[in-house]
Design a protein around this nucleic acid. Structure first.
Lengths: 206, 206
DNA sequence: TAGTCAATCCCCCTTTCGGGGTATTTTATC
DNA sequence: GATAAAATACCCCGAAAGGGGGATTGACTA
């Protein structure tokens, strides 16, 4: 009996490609392309393990992992992401996510990771431990616009509808600090209005 | 004789997955995972068409396309990217890149795009043209939220980044009139902030 | 003809944004 | 130990957004 696996990634080609690659090893019980569909599909298909992208439309991987941990505590969760940012790793561990694999892994590494997690182990890609911040590992947009991690974090919170005051409270920062970050973001992106920032964030799945 | 195709993408899983997906249709003569290897491999394998990621290590897709156009002018170049940034599309067209496909396409769209390019056509994903829904598709919103035509018109203008003053000028209305419309929209949608309106507009393709 | 509703406009007010500075501390890197 | 980058924080100011109230006109209609 092959383990039941669910793939959640909004890039159809990637999602489909991974399915092809590992369908000999696992029973692919579903494919999801939007964050808002994940919980429903999980409820219906009851997978043993879910390969979860972090940058999903509607609901991001972290929020989904939080919900999944509440409602389906036996399901193994593995992040399959391109991001190597330490704070992502940290957050994943805090959320008790079982594994963290990188999109530039090989098929063999992917299968090894999934099997390890199914065996009850935690599996975080070794590359995550030997992180040297080399420029070409960063997201292209971060490089293009020189956005810092903090700035990206704040962009996400703005996108989620929070105002400057709320962001300051949540991050335990002063109001003026967040304002400064906002100003720097606007300058770097050469924009001047909230709507333009929203458009940028949504265009680029930030 | 199947067309000779080269895949250049640093995400091993994606690269491998795409190969699996389309190896029935094309002769995959090579896979590259780093920008600095592309020109060498192209010289050796002489593909008819190359699927090129934009965000590659060492050398990015644009620089590679520029070089490829100089040295191998008959090779068809197709960007396969997650980015929908207009400036990327612009730059691609300027570089005479033959196609631009998105990673959230289906297998069928991918093959259609490649075949079109091989037939000598240009193929830029239709999603890139940001098609505006026709004004006659508003019935749903009118019924669901009792939004009037004027209100929908103003929602669109807000979404496009215009502020209240600009909208008033463009519609030859008083500032207070547009403010009233905004208040009514917020009331009908049970929202209170611009970001929520943007989210609504994008969720519902307004 | 009385009632409803979309569209127009005006007053009040507070909060938030956006843009112009400047400055300190922390962290990473050389 | 020097330097650079990131993150933190503050000042001032005008513009814009948001929320409360009310009012008029015209069109359609029950």
């Amino acid at each position: 009996m092959k383990p039941r696996l669910l793939i959640a990634d909004d890039h159809t080609l990637f999602n489909e490609g991974v399915k092809q690659l590992i369908s000999d090893h696992y029973n692919i019980v579903g494919q999801v392309f939007d964050g808002k569909d994940v919980l429903t599909i999980v409820m219906v298909t009851r997978p043993d393990v879910i390969l979860l992208d972090i940058n999903l439309p509607s609901i991001n991987g972290f929020d989904l992992a939080t919900e999944l941990r509440k409602s389906f505590e036996t399901i193994k969760i593995i992040f399959l992401s391109m991001y190597t940012e330490p704070r992502f790793i940290e957050q994943s561990k805090q959320l008790k996510v079982d594994g963290y694999l990188l999109k530039n892994s090989t098929k063999e590494e992917l299968i090894l990771g999934i099997d390890s997690v199914l065996n009850g182990e935690n599996y975080y890609d070794q590359k995550l431990n030997q992180l040297r911040p080399s420029p070409h590992q960063d997201d292209f947009f971060v490089k293009q616009f020189s956005l810092t991690p903090r700035e990206i974090e704040i962009i996400r919170m703005i996108k989620d509808g929070m105002n400057t005051t709320e962001i300051a409270e949540k991050l335990f920062l002063g109001l003026e600090t967040v304002k400064t970050h906002r100003k720097n973001i606007y300058f770097k992106l050469s924009i001047s209005k909230l709507t333009e920032l929203l458009k940028f964030a949504l265009d680029n799945n930030i």
